[in-house]
Design a protein around this nucleic acid. Sequence first.
DNA 1: GTGCGACGTCATGGATGGTTGCCATGGACG
DNA 2: CGTCCATGGCAACCATCCATGACGTCGCAC
Lengths: 368, 368
Amino acid sequence: MATIHDVAHLAGVSKSLVSRYLNDQKGVSPESTLKIIAAIKELNYRPNGIARSLVLQKTHTIGIVVDDLCATFIFRLIEGLERGAEDFDVDEKYNIIFCNSNGDVQRKQRHLNFLMNGRVDGIVLYGSLVYDDTMIQQLVHSNFPLMLIENDIEGTDVNKVVIDNIGGAFMATEHLINLGHRRIAHIGGNMNLKITLDRMNGYVRALQRYNVPVDQSLIIFPDFSDVDEWKKRDEFMSQNLYFDRGYVEMKKLIEKNQVPEAIFFATDLSAFGAIKAMNEVGLRVPEDVSVIGFDDEFRAAGSFNCKPVTTMMQPLKQAGYVGIQKLVYSLGHPHAAKERILLNTELVVRESTCANKRLASAEQDTRV
Amino acid sequence: MATIHDVAHLAGVSKSLVSRYLNDQKGVSPESTLKIIAAIKELNYRPNGIARSLVLQKTHTIGIVVDDLCATFIFRLIEGLERGAEDFDVDEKYNIIFCNSNGDVQRKQRHLNFLMNGRVDGIVLYGSLVYDDTMIQQLVHSNFPLMLIENDIEGTDVNKVVIDNIGGAFMATEHLINLGHRRIAHIGGNMNLKITLDRMNGYVRALQRYNVPVDQSLIIFPDFSDVDEWKKRDEFMSQNLYFDRGYVEMKKLIEKNQVPEAIFFATDLSAFGAIKAMNEVGLRVPEDVSVIGFDDEFRAAGSFNCKPVTTMMQPLKQAGYVGIQKLVYSLGHPHAAKERILLNTELVVRESTCANKRLASAEQDTRV
DNA sequence: GTGCGACGTCATGGATGGTTGCCATGGACG
DNA sequence: CGTCCATGGCAACCATCCATGACGTCGCAC
């Protein structure tokens, strides 16, 4: 591989002059320019970014660490991140590189070390596993430029974009209550995720707010203890797992003859699974059971022959966009105050929720 | 940020001794070791990977460039790549970083330049757009360590893993022919992808091989000229596009009253869309129309309330695994011969194909 | 007892491929 | 003749690795 030294030698100038040419600095005569161009071409020279980063103490790169790059709604985050980076600096765009930990803590730590060893100027971390906390704390204390997305770790001064899961779950439950439902179940997600707890929290708060008694038997957390086993399968996708858990828990409710009037699911995927279980025994959605999900999985919109599902949309694209812009900004302004940016979810009403039968017939009564 | 120099200074030794300690080399006395450890801890020192890479001329990193990181079957590739890298070198695992071009050629070029400027030891490139050819050719000629996956560029000496799309399409069509179908349509994908042409090719060859006349009106290529417009949409996913195209083309066939006995789709997603269109008018799959797809989209297996679809499985995980292992191997053996590794697809029979009605009734006749 | 080589430990300094501040040169111009 | 500016070279620097050799100790053979 040719170096700047080779180019300078061939062109008959000093390497500092070649460097100036490469960086569009003035003070390079037309003749020198021509000679340098010819030399570069002949040697097929390309500047070594590593050496450049070393001396400039700047990589112009942001690393993204994600637990599950294959989660289907991640595409929104990715798109937001890339657009955000491109819009921030039109002249010299930041490079974005992804690392996928696949939920493996060791792999995640390895990726973080790798990136922090000078590979990138800043890191965006998406997701929040409960057992990650120590690692994240260390990360924060290392003072490395950081942006947490969907990880509302407490008691630390750090940039983060958080999505109001409690509020979203509140709104979802409120929506069901407003439709006249009272026996409302909640089928949660993996309890190792903080968002899972938040969503349950919002559910409970909504019930309390509207004086609906909280029935512990209607708060269901599927067993995720066999996750590691699932991961060893040849074709693991977390989505299949969530789908399966929704299906299994719904079957249980059916067998125990405890089907509620409405269900708030912590993830759309579990809702899909549950709908499948209900279809199998002739339960109709939403006529018999109203169903609301969370995430706005793109399938929720009704593609692929699934029933369009009412859900809470997460503004993940916006989160990526805002997050990376704030991060890049803070690279240029090291003393800028850290921020906690809160984004709200949005209720998307589709076809899986409707007014409660009791309410509907009561209304009819009054009309007649 | 503390440097090795600071550590050496604080520990009262030379920086080369610190370096020896860091690299587990012998020749560091116990006392020195203790002093160095203390200094590292006190300064919160972490070695600078950039400087390290510069002097070692080695980054221990592989870059992956993908056109569409969000395509749903990519997860197989990712898993294959990571497992392959981890299995190859257990002691010091290669780092893997992803770059997502999102089908944007400029972005792709930018990513490639970035990676080739010394950021990584080798590059894995997945996918093959027709208009990429010049770029890939240049890349190959640059002699940078490279592994192409699903890009069977011709006339070049380069490592690649290719999947036998022609053979797969042949088998898919053969499957339909064996079921007694004669009027078999083909609905293709985006003609900017080479695999699209290969799949059509295999379809035609199978028809010819079994003396089924090729009917040009049954070879349908949806219009993808508005892709760029779709991409500008807020929530673009290529999968929605393919679904839509299958739906639209199927509607056309229905309206023109030209519904065939069987259809071979270049992608499962288009098959899903077409099935939706058929459902809407009461056409049954497979009783009225047999449908076979390609890719083995994980939804094809019947999750999410879709009908389980017969399809050709792409061994993408294997492709990633084999590909990165060969690449890493060739980094250690610069003169190893380049290879073209061919992987075969596999027919997965599910519920969207069945014997032709004619055939079925004929069989019954003979039985009676 | 002495000379010599082996060995453990460590510092020095050059190398990796760039960038940049400073200074030298030389021609134009007032 | 003094000043200014365009041009371009020198050398230090970024953080690390490593080849070389210095230095002292020790064992062994003569």
